[in-house]
């Protein structure tokens, strides 16, 4: 994959990969229980800690960051608007609603069942959002994200109300606030599905870029627009559901990462998609480490860190938006 990136000079590619590995490596040794590279050789407990807890955590951070950034990018293509992402436009909330419904009606459901049904509700929720957005005037750039926030709020409120009725309020906090502290061996495996979907999206990079030109232009070029919309919808829904079930909702990754990459390298997904994937992983890794360090030995959930970091970056994106200046 890295060799085919072809978007930066090779040395920059190697540099980027090296940095990601370096930070991942550093992240392995941040935690309440002291773990150092040296102790791995001497202490058998240390090796166990690494394999059972620290490594799964880093892997889940990388997989989540990558796949959420890609899901945000795909969602922006679907609605042709830069300022939406699954976590704020109803997909995440629909997934949470799905989990609550499963918990209520199939109490002993396996994680797989939860995830499957959360994917279905995320699909329905995102699909409904797309139908609503299609009726909005395209020129109103800021109307789509606003409608998304309102819509996500309504779906989230329904989920919260249901949870409150069923005494599941504590659980809803867990799903609505993404964090990686629970990611131990065996708990994060589903995230590989999200990671695989992120890789898969690269094979459809051209098709997604053409879809982003708008329906008529895409159909003029012979693209089966509706099929691409369906593929994108399924991709966004599964990634959202998988990450919500395992990690919880993490806001802003899907919004800020594709926007920053777009400013820098443009929107030809063949070139930008690998950078979005990489930057999503890197940013999530950094935010996760920050969350673990600021109030050490306690932890701030990565979802909260992103809430702060993401809000600032989003404001910056809005104020310096080239499209806003044009409009």
């Amino acid at each position: 994959m890295i060799a085919s990136l072809n978007v930066l000079q090779p040395y920059k590619c190697y540099m980027a990969v090296f940095l990601l590995l370096l930070f991942s490596f550093a992240s392995l040794f941040v935690g309440v229980i002291e773990l150092t590279p040296a102790s791995l050789w001497s202490d058998p407990e240390a090796a166990w800690l690494l394999a059972a807890s620290r490594l799964p955590r880093v892997l889940s951070v990388l997989l989540t960051g990558t796949s959420l950034a890609i899901a945000g990018l795909v969602m922006q293509v679907l609605v042709q608007n830069r300022f939406v992402e699954p976590a704020t436009a109803g997909s995440g909330q629909s997934a949470v609603l799905g989990i609550i419904l499963v918990t209520l009606f199939i109490p002993g459901a396996s994680l797989m069942t939860k995830m499957g049904l959360a994917s279905v509700t995320a699909l329905l929720g995102t699909g409904l959002f797309l139908l609503i957005v299609r009726r909005l005037p395209v020129q109103e750039t800021y109307l789509v994200p606003l409608v998304g926030i309102v819509y996500g709020g309504v779906v989230g409120a329904v989920a919260t109300w249901l949870a409150w009725q069923a005494d599941l309020i504590q659980l809803i906090d867990i799903w609505l606030t993404g964090e990686f502290s629970g990611m131990i061996r065996g708990r994060y495996d589903f995230l590989w599905i999200a990671g695989a979907l992120a890789v898969f999206s690269y094979f459809l990079a051209d098709q997604f870029t053409i879809a982003s030109l708008g329906e008529d232009q895409a159909r003029n070029l012979g693209l089966n627009y509706n099929v691409m919309m369906a593929i994108g919808l399924v991709l966004v829904s599964i990634v959202t559901a998988v990450t919500v079930v395992t990690v919880g909702v993490i806001p802003f990754i899907g919004l800020i990462v594709p926007n920053i990459v777009s400013r820098w390298r443009g929107d030809n997904l063949r070139h930008s998609l690998p950078l979005v994937a990489y930057s999503g992983a890197m940013l999530t890794l950094l935010c996760d480490v920050v969350g673990r360090v600021v109030i050490f030995p306690y932890e701030v959930p990565v979802g909260s860190v992103f809430g702060v970091v993401g809000a600032f970056i989003t404001l910056w994106l809005l104020y310096s938006s080239p499209s806003a200046k044009r409009a």
Partner: peptide, 30 residues
């Protein structure tokens, strides 16, 4: 059909940040 007939709409606003060459290259997609 795209190889036999092409159309340019009157109000083709492109929101994507593409380079001119990339956009023109997508004409070869069919």
């Amino acid at each position: 059909l795209a190889r036999h007939m092409s159309i340019l709409r009157q109000d083709s606003a492109i929101g994507s940040r593409l380079k001119v060459r990339d956009l023109v290259s997508f004409g070869r997609y069919p």
